[in-house]
Structures are given as structure tokens and as C-alpha cells.
Amino acid sequence: MAKARGLVAVNFEECKGCKLCVDACPVDVLHLAKSFNTHGYSPAEYDGEGCTGCGICYYACPEPGAITVFKRWEEAQEAYICHNNNVQSRLSLQDSVRGLALCDSCGQEVILSDFLNLRFAE
């Protein structure tokens, strides 16, 4: 089995629950949530472990910002730039199912699927 070195983060509000990512994931680590988002959809959710970072679900998904895939989570974790203190920081995974982390520098919660607003060192 492929190595689980990736991390998938589904944006709870941007997902429309179409299930295409769930069916596309080769290692079957996505499922539809039982709850609903504000727009009335049951969003996809990460099982919490096992993502290889292959990116297949990202391309399967029709929503521009519903899925973010960190191909190598450990590298991304270390490269995070805190937008409050503008320094390179570290992300501690908080809730892998919902894609939430804490910034080591400012201590604030980071929504991992809010990709356009996150910065990482090259």
C-alpha cells in the first residue's frame, strides 16, 4: 500500500457533496459527512488518515476551492508562514477530519483548505 504522507483538507462550506472525490480516491479515505453545511450539502470528509497525497481527488472535484491536497504534509507543515507575525512557523495538526491546524507562532487556528490565504516558504 502507498505511503500515507499526504493530507487532504476539504472546505466544509465550499463542498457540494457530489461524491466524485469519494469515488475517485484510490485508497478510499474520503466519505460524505452526516451533517450539512450552510448551503444544504453533506460535504466530503477525510477519514483522518491514509491520504497518500496523490492529488486525484483535487482534479476530480468541480469546485475551485473545495479540496486542498498537501502532497507531503510534513514538508508543508514546516514551511508555513504565519500571517500574523510574518515569520516562518510550524503547523500542528488539530483536526485531520475537518482540516484544522494551529499555528505555532501565533497560536491561532488555520483552516487548511483556505489555500489562497495561506503562505508557505518556497
Binding site: G65, I67, R72, A76, L116, A121, E122
Partner: peptide, 15 residues
Amino acid sequence: MSVKILGKSKGFYDT
């Protein structure tokens, strides 16, 4: 080494 992340494209508006 560049960080490999697939996320919302900059070709789209943020909101």
C-alpha cells in the same frame, strides 16, 4: 525544495 500543494488556483477570485 518547493512545497507541493494543490489548492484553489490563483486564476480564480478568492471569493
